[in-house]
Computed example of a mutant assay.
Amino acid sequence: MRKLTKSTIVVGAALAAAVGFSTSPASAAGTWTVTGGGSFTAVATSPILTDTNTGTQLKCTKSNAAGSAANGTGLSGTAIASISSVTWTSCSGPAGISFTVTAQGLPWKLNAATYSAGVTTGTITGVKAHISGLCNADFNGPTAGSTATLTGKYTNSTHVLTVSGGNLKAYNVSGICLGLINNGDSAVYSANYVLSPATLQITSP
């Protein structure tokens, strides 16, 4: 009887811990509030895609995006905002080689995970892109054809969505790439998108 009671306590404690972890205030479903939402556009100046295996950087002068976030309270952090279009302007790599970048897998989803002092950190999911020019490649997730997950951080005071990190990888590399981009290379996309109108606020207790 004593063993059964101790076992029951252990199991109960484990279940309580699991429930507590899955519903922590910063990440629980139903704790998020969005105001000033609706449709938005966003512009990032000088975004960069970096092949972390070779150090090759693909730089663009600008990236434009558009999306929406629904106003509400008690929202889930999942898909708290949606990015419906992304374009890039004047992209070039080493020696000034020009590239065209095309977003795929749209819409991408912004998922809120943690909140602190006006800053929401989470993920951007569904991400895929293709570059074309003298060198061609697909940038997908961990496996060919899969979608990537990037790190996203939204700051209420500046209305800036910062994109970084993630698990992008290069696939279907072809053309004259000269070893600058190779199949299986990991990549990081870095950009700061300024939203307009400057009204969106995302909060969580």
Results as ranks from 00 to 15, higher is better:
T54E: 01
G93P: 00
I202R: 04
G67D: 07
T151I: 06
A144W: 02
A137D: 04
G67P: 05
G30N: 11
A70F: 01
P47T: 03
S157T: 14
A79I: 14
A113M: 04
L75W: 02
A148H: 10
T149N: 13
F21Q: 06
I97C: 04
N71S: 08
L161R: 08
G37I: 04
A113E: 09
S90E: 12
A137N: 08
A66I: 09
A144R: 05
K109V: 07
N156C: 07
T56A: 05
T147G: 07
S90Q: 13
L4S: 13
S98Y: 06
S186D: 12
L200P: 02
S82P: 04
P107M: 12
S98N: 13
T8W: 10
N111S: 14
T114Y: 03
K153Y: 00
T123V: 08
K59G: 00
A66F: 00
K128L: 04
G72K: 07
Q104K: 00
T158F: 12
T151R: 12
Y154Q: 13
G145F: 03
K109W: 04
S85W: 10
T123R: 01
A66Q: 09
N64S: 09
Q201L: 07
N53S: 12
V127D: 15
A113Y: 05
Y193E: 02
L200V: 01
G152H: 01
L106C: 11
S174R: 07
T143A: 02
Y115N: 09
Q104P: 00
A112L: 01
L200S: 01
A129S: 08
Y154H: 13
S186V: 09
L195G: 01
I97W: 02
I97R: 10
D185C: 08
N183Q: 05
K153S: 12
F139T: 00
T158C: 13
C177D: 08
T5P: 01
F40M: 10
C91D: 09
A129C: 02
T23H: 11
A16V: 15
A16F: 14
D51M: 10
I80L: 10
A191I: 05
G184F: 03
V173C: 04
T52A: 09
P25I: 11
A28C: 12
I83N: 03
A144F: 07
S132W: 04
S46I: 06
S84K: 05
P25F: 14
K59T: 13
G74C: 04
V34W: 03
L4P: 03
G93V: 15
V86N: 00
G145K: 00
L200A: 03
N192W: 11
S190R: 11
G96N: 07
T50L: 05
S196C: 08
K169N: 13
V11M: 14
F40C: 05
N182R: 13
I83L: 15
Y171M: 09
S84R: 06
S90F: 03
T41E: 07
G179R: 10
S186E: 10
K109F: 08
G30I: 15
I124W: 12
W108V: 06
Y189L: 15
S204N: 15
A18Q: 09
A44G: 05
I97Q: 10
